[in-house]
């Protein structure tokens, strides 16, 4: 868990981020969410000390405005005020109605407020099928080019031979 990619750092503490979309798949998501709709985001505290510190969460649409350290911004779609989580886990049940870029903000009130931001996309996922389709297109293009070059070469070679005859 210490060396995984799906973690965010607030002050000197680490949290692990996992996204679930149970209605579409059993997969766990890290960073980007493939589809719009109901999503469950879970933040697990890697550091034990976080359980004694009030934590707040804000999910907002990324409208380009520089929000600084302010939580509960106008473009916010979900805001959870500061609260302690002795179980070490925050479960966020949210419905993403629109695709696009969002920003997650996690703030801890540890004497002073420390905010971590993590941007993520919703509904712009690369599914396996789409990836395979693109691979097929590329490979077909490569084969086609090769065959065309071969044909052109064969025609070019025929000409001197034809003239010799």
């Amino acid at each position: 868990m210490e060396a995984d990619q799906c973690k965010l750092k607030v002050d000197s503490y680490f949290m692990h981020f996992t996204g679930y979309q149970p209605q579409s798949s059993r997969a766990e998501f890290c960073e980007d969410i493939p589809e719009v709709g109901r999503t469950i985001i879970v933040l697990d505290f890697v550091d034990q000390s976080l359980r004694d510190i009030p934590v707040s969460v804000n999910l907002a649409r990324d409208d380009g405005a520089r929000t600084g350290d302010t939580m509960n911004t106008p473009s916010s779609i979900l805001y959870i005020p500061p609260k302690k989580y002795p179980n070490g886990t925050i479960k966020i049940d949210v419905n993403f109605e629109q695709a696009g870029r969002y920003i997650g903000m996690v703030a801890i009130e540890n004497g002073e407020r420390n905010v971590a931001k993590f941007p993520f996309d919703v509904g712009r996922g690369w599914s396996l099928i789409r990836l395979l389709a693109w691979c097929l297109v590329l490979v077909s293009a490569a084969i086609g080019t090769f065959l065309w070059a071969l044909r052109r070469n064969a025609i070019a070679q025929n000409l001197p031979a034809a003239s010799e005859k």
Binding site: M1, H16, N87, T89
Partner: peptide, 15 residues
């Protein structure tokens, strides 16, 4: 039994 430790200890890949 509720705690983040299930996840941190990676004990729940029952899936």
């Amino acid at each position: 039994a509720t705690d983040a430790v299930w996840e941190l200890e990676r004990l729940v890949s029952f899936l």
